[in-house]
Nucleic acid binder design. Structure first.
Length: 731
DNA sequence: CTAGGGTTAG
């Protein structure tokens, strides 16, 4: 037994072809590099590669092959076809292997003969010949060709791996052939076969390189990866930092952050394979994704203390979490920190920030950052464009969004699933469902698969148009296609039902979603609470709040805003103020919407003194007014004839890139008119039409009077026509 | 082959 192993020709093959391949990638386990291991005892586990015994040929066949290969060797520039014409009639597929034998020292000729053979429809290249061609390619330094042949072999023959092993002893120089083979299996996602191949090879003493094992590891579901991580080293694989990173990344993606940290701990304590920037960045990102800013910061410090410098990835993860929490300003502060440390922000970092500011409605900051990134020589990529398109959609500027989409395509960037989804969502939110579905078609034609997010956007759009039947149908359809509805999808549907006055059905849908194994979240409860608030059933809303708290679901700021709205709409403004104070006491930061409810209702009561008081409180807490805040303030002050304040806020909101609502235009125009500031009023009247708002009847009357008094009969009549067309018809 | 940004719901 022992002697067989020692005589194994593979060993002589390894040494005689050493020049042809890189052996560092594949090594035999228990080799002489670990002298404490007695080779002979371990070798009893190994078996030799099979001996090669090709089928015998008849004398005439042997002669044919001999003449053919001789002709090939002597071939002058003319084509293979011409050389082979005299043999073509008698040639059979099983001659190929023998021809390769004869052409062993002429790999170039041998390989082109295989290619020629494959090109002829009446021949089939046997798996054995394919395997030999791969060995020959590798031995002669043609790594690319070897890879191609092996991939083709795996894809075309059922018994290909056996053939590679069977022909290895006689033809190969290099165990790297197995490494390439293994990788190809992984690339074809034939992971179970790759697994068996790995262990099959160990019986011959071949161990796949750690790089290829990493490629394999990275394609496994995390549980399987963990098994392999324990299993492979028993066969001689020595994992490196990348291997740990792959497993840690898998754990983080599965939300198993504690286990990811255990791996990090293990690396640090064992000290043989040390964590690198990627290891830390991966775990930091994991914590950021689950919203645990403090843990992320701690790891950030820890990596520094171990001499690892955070890079743009590390910073970006933290900034992304801040932006998600509406802390774009803080995120931008971190941008300065990273720049001070010499870390150069890239377009991903800027995209994060742009998205963060877009989330809090700061369009001017969005513009500023786009300019800033361009100044730094960063080119907006598809991700940046997608963010910008989304940001335009979010403030209702779907036309501009579409223009930007066109621009991005003109610049040669390609739209992906996300870009299309953003635009589809934009059109859906704008109520233009035909356009939304047209884009859905377009994305299919571009070969992009819409995902559940795309369909949620579409379904939500249908719901918002009151087409609940259609939404239901759409969702059923996609379920049948095998897409899984997620919590967002259900929440959107529940919202649609609530908004169409069908709270009962909405509650049933809540049960359905729980039955489907999806847990309702703060969105779900907030939606339902809102519905009860809107019909004045504050008690039932409160009951739902209890229920969500019992389930340990954290209410969000929107939950409180819904309650605030409920109080205000029910005329309980004092209760609303109390809620605000309670929130402040509990350190729950209100946002613009929280204040907007109070501001709106006090302003409707023409109590501008309290409005101003509340606005000051908002300002002093650093809460930036949003577009609605300005519209409320402007309308309120106009109605109270405080034109100075109204104009002040108007100017400020324009400066921030916000747009006035039709109501604000009407109020402001009327206010200015009453103060006889006709020029300004006229200008705004024109502007409001330019941006597509329709003035109310009252405004038309004012301008009709004005023009009439100015003797401008033509314009007067024009306005009368317009007023009739826009304000009377259909009202 | 390992790390970051852009998308859906209140």
């Amino acid at each position: 037994m022992r002697s067989v192993v020692l005589k194994n020709p593979r060993i002589s093959a390894l040494s005689s072809y050493r020049c042809c391949g890189d052996f560092s990638s594949v090594r035999r386990p228990f080799s002489s590099s670990s002298p404490s291991t007695p080779i002979d005892t371990l070798n009893t586990n190994l078996r030799p590669f099979p001996e090669y015994t090709p089928k015998k040929l008849s004398i005439t066949d042997a002669e044919l092959v001999h003449n053919l290969t001789t002709a090939l060797k002597q071939r002058r520039p003319h084509s293979l076809d011409r050389t082979l014409i005299p043999f073509a009639d008698r040639l059979r597929s099983d001659h190929l292997v023998w021809a390769l034998f004869q052409l062993r020292s002429h790999p170039a000729i041998a390989l082109s003969f295989v290619r020629w053979f494959r090109g002829k429809t009446r021949f089939v290249v046997p798996a054995e010949a394919q395997a030999i061609a791969a060995h020959l390619s590798l031995v002669s330094g043609r790594v690319g060709a070897a890879r191609q042949l092996l991939r083709q072999g795996i894809a075309s023959y059922r018994n290909f791996i056996e053939q590679v092993i069977y022909t290895y002893r006689h033809w190969s120089s290099d165990p790297e052939v197995f490494d390439i083979l293994f990788r190809a299996m992984v690339e074809f996602r034939r992971l179970e076969e790759a697994h068996s191949l790995f262990f099959h090879l160990t019986t011959f003493g071949v161990v796949i390189s750690v790089d290829s094992c990493n490629a394999y590891l990275s394609h496994l579901p995390v549980d399987a990866a963990l098994n392999v991580f324990v299993e492979f080293p028993l066969s001689g694989v020595r994992w490196n930092t990348n291997s740990y990173n792959i497993v840690i990344c898998g754990l983080c993606r599965a939300g198993k952050l504690v286990e990811a940290c255990e791996f990090l701990l293990k690396m640090n304590s064992e000290g043989t394979v040390l964590p690198d920037v990627i290891t830390y960045s991966t775990i930091i990102h994991g914590y950021c994704r689950s919203g645990e800013l403090q843990r992320a910061y701690d790891l950030f410090q820890e990596m520094r203390s171990r001499g690892l410098k955070p890079n743009e990835f590390t910073f970006n993860s933290i900034m992304a979490l801040q932006c998600k929490k509406g802390m774009a300003v803080e995120a931008e502060r971190l941008l300065l920190v990273m720049e001070n440390e010499g870390v150069v922000p890239d377009s991903a970092v800027y995209t994060t920030l742009i998205s963060g500011y877009s989330n809090i409605g700061s369009l001017s900051a969005v513009h500023r950052l786009v300019d800033e990134m361009k100044d730094k020589g960063l080119v907006p990529d598809a991700g940046t464009y997608t963010t910008l398109i989304s940001s335009l959609c979010r403030c209702g500027r779907i036309i501009d969004a579409d223009l930007l989409f066109q621009e991005m395509l003109r610049k040669g960037l390609s739209a992906d699933q996300v870009t299309y989804t953003v635009l589809i969502d934009g059109y859906a939110k704008d109520g233009r469902m035909q356009e939304a579905f047209r884009l859905h078609e377009e994305m299919l034609q571009a070969g992009l698969m819409p995902n559940i997010v795309t369909y949620t956007a579409l379904s939500d759009g249908l719901c918002k148009q009151g087409e609940l039947e259609a939404a239901n149908e759409l969702l059923h359809e996609i379920c049948q296609k095998g897409l899984q509805l997620n919590v967002c999808t259900y929440n959107s549907l529940i919202n649609g039902l609530c908004k169409s006055g069908n709270i009962e059905q909405a509650m049933k849908t809540l049960e359905e979603m729980e039955a489907a194994g999806l847990n309702p979240d703060a969105y779900t409860y907030t939606t339902l609470m809102d519905a009860y608030c809107k019909i004045g059933e504050l008690t039932r809303a409160h009951g739902l709040l209890r229920e969500m708290l019992d389930k340990c679901i954290q209410p969000s700021i929107v939950t409180f805003n819904v309650l605030m709205n409920g109080f205000c709409a029910a005329g309980k403004l004092e209760d609303g103020q109390k809620l605000l104070e309670w929130m402040l006491g509990k350190n729950i930061m209100p946002n613009a919407a929280t204040y907007n409810s109070l501001l709106k209702n006090y302003s409707m009561e023409k109590n501008m003194k309290v409005v101003t008081e509340i606005y000051r409180g908002m300002h002093s807490r650093g809460i930036l007014p949003d577009e609605s805040t300005y519209n409320i303030l402007i309308t309120g002050h106009c109605k109270a004839r405080n034109m100075k304040e109204a104009c002040y806020f108007h100017k400020e909101m324009i400066g921030k890139g916000f747009r006035m609502s039709a109501t604000s235009y009407n109020a402001l125009i009327e206010g200015l008119y009453r103060k006889k500031r006709f020029m300004e009023a006229k200008q705004l009247f024109q502007e409001m039409q330019d941006v597509g708002h329709v003035a109310n009847k009252n405004i038309y009357n004012l301008f009709i009077d004005l023009n009439y008094n100015e003797g401008n009969i033509e314009r007067t009549l024009e306005l009368c026509d317009e007023a009739i067309e826009k304000c009377l018809i259909g009202s």
